[in-house]
Structures are given as C-alpha cells and as structure tokens.
Design a protein around this nucleic acid. Structure first.
Lengths: 168, 168
DNA sequence: CTTGCTGCAAAAGTTTTGCACACGT
DNA sequence: ACGTGTGCAAAACTTTTGCAGCAAG
C-alpha cells in the first residue's frame, strides 16, 4: 500500500482511478466521455463485488441514464485498464470487483444466502507462487473462492432451507 | 472386467460412482434412465474440466444421441449427488469437474491458450478452514484458480500474442 | 472535421422450460 | 398404471454487435 501522497483508507482513491482511466483511454486512442466518467464513479462507489445489471439499475435510480451496451463496453475497458477485475462467483452472470485500491482476490460465499464477502488472505499469495513455479507457470493473478455457511445463516439454520439454489 | 474388490488408481471408480448416482436418484424418487447412465459414463471418462456442450458433442460422435436439455438436467442431478462440481473458470459458460474420485479444486489457467490444468494443492485446505473460522463461516468447499503463463506459452512468447481474450 | 461513442434494436450464446409422448419402477 | 424423463421447440437470460445519429479530440 505505498501511495504517492496521502493514504485515506476510507475513500477509495477516486482521483487516481480517474487519472488512470484517462491515461489508459488516451493511450488507446479512445475518448473519455461523460458516460464513461459516470460509470467509473458508480464503480468506485462499490465497496464489494457487483454485477453489470446492478450497476445499471443503481445509476438509473440516481437519474444517470446509461444504456446496457455502454455499461458492458465500459466495464470491458475498465478491465483492460486494470481498474476492475472479473470475479466469476456465480454461473448466471459475471461479477466485478474494484482492483485499483486494494485487491483481496479471496471471497467467502454463503451457500444459503448467496452473499459474497471479499476477505483478505495474504498467505495465499506465496502458496500460489509456489504452485505456479512447481508447474513451470509464470504467475499472473489468482482467485480463491470459499463456499460455506455464514454466521447469520447458521443461526437461522432451523428455518425452511431457503429455496435458494446451492452453488458449489 | 471389474471385480468387486480391486482398486485400480487409473480407472476412476466407475462402479462406485454409478452406485452413488443410483442411490441418490432412488432416494429422491427419480429414475435411473439409459440417458442418465450414458451421461454419467461420459462424465466419468473426463479426466479434467469439461463443458456441457463439449460433452454433448463427444457423446454424439460416439453415436450416443442425447439432447441438450437432458445433458443440463442430468448435470444438475450429478451436482446435487456430489458426483461433479461446477468450476466457473470462464464467464462464457460453466465448466464441470468430477469430484467423486479425487478433488483437486485448484486450477492453473494459461491466460494465452486458455488451457486449464487441475492441480493438487492440499495446503490450501487448512488455510481456507482458518479463514472461514476467522469470519465465523462454516466451511463447505472452496476453489482456487490461478492465472498465469504456461511453460509452452512462455516458449512461444515471441510469436504474435495469440489474439485470445485475456481472462483475469 | 475526423474518429470514436451512444442508444436502439436485434443477434448470439448458453441454459431453462412447456408440452406431448415414451419409459422406468 | 403411475409418475417421471426425453426431445423438440421456444423462452429466458446475460452479453455482444450493426447501424444511424452524436459528441469528443
């Protein structure tokens, strides 16, 4: 967490991310439009994992009108700019996570409620490096997803088993 | 050719898996049909990760005609019977992996070729248990996906960057 | 002014479902 | 015989794409 000037751990570096994105776009010959700015801001406001459609709904609720295609196109650019990453927790649709501030890359998923919690698991890093080198791989990134029963669901365990599809 | 009491480590326990599936189906009031048997056998022949459509194609090539809906319906039952599990490596479609013989639950994905290698990483187990308990979760299962560059791709690194979409 | 961007509508892709008929128990 | 399974066709769903007008550099 070596930041150039100041380290606010609550506000997730809004200015830098915007600068990173603008630099990336310019370098690719792409344009920084108001839609892209609004989507980036919406993304920066997410503290945990989010879905494309969720983003669209929330932006429209706030009065920002963006089309679904533009959301997807911008998410793709944000991925290539290494500002967000895809998470793949659910087979139904993609999830995304901000990756520019901190990058947990580890997730706890409750198999009852489908809630997703990003958690820190720094020890995993060295293990993945070791495994990669054992197999001759050059490590790039990794993702650890753990499925289990959240404390809340353990408490409500005697209720009807909450008709949710169990994902494993 | 399979005698009741013999353990070959190459053949991945065909009889047991079939028995497990039949027991599961009976217990659920479901039926063991020839299609389900054929799909189970096709699944048991897969040594690594596979896709639903791949399974369909391979079965048809061998002369077994099954419909796509039946494949999906049967895969769902196999999941609930804990014979296979979903892997979620690619946003495009689901991947599945046999989980009844051995369960690696760790994967090396080459970001150039998209090849997927299942690898053993037993040390991860105790870490995930620790992380779960740190957060009050009751651990159920987990999955570790590592992205990197395979030895083969590192060798061919100077070629054109193989127009593949990089998944992260 | 040139080039890329947006929104609409529609396409593409995987996965699911309704229904009539067939099969396992 | 009963109830469940199968295949077909079509729906549902997320994500992508073609195109005409619009906006950023």
């Amino acid at each position: 967490m070596a930041d150039p000037a100041q380290k606010s751990s609550d506000e997730p570096l809004i200015e830098p991310a915007c600068a990173v994105f603008r630099r990336f776009l310019k370098q690719q010959g792409l344009k920084f439009t108001s839609e892209r700015a609004k989507i980036l801001n919406a993304v920066l406001s997410k503290s945990s994992v989010f879905e494309a459609d969720q983003l669209l709904t929330e932006m429209r609720d706030v009065g920002h009108s963006v089309s679904r295609p533009t959301i997807y196109r911008t998410l793709k650019h944000l991925r290539h700019a290494n500002i967000i990453r895809q998470v793949l927790i659910d087979a139904k649709q993609s999830h995304y996570q901000l990756s520019i501030g901190q990058d947990p890359q580890s997730y706890l998923v409750c198999i009852d409620t489908n809630e997703i919690f990003a958690v820190a698991a720094p020890e995993i890093d060295e293990f993945t490096r070791k495994i990669c080198s054992d197999h001759g791989f050059e490590p790039v990134s990794h993702r650890l997803i753990m499925y289990g029963v959240s404390p809340k669901s353990q408490a409500a365990e005697d209720d009807e088993s909450s008709g949710n599809e169990v994902l494993r």
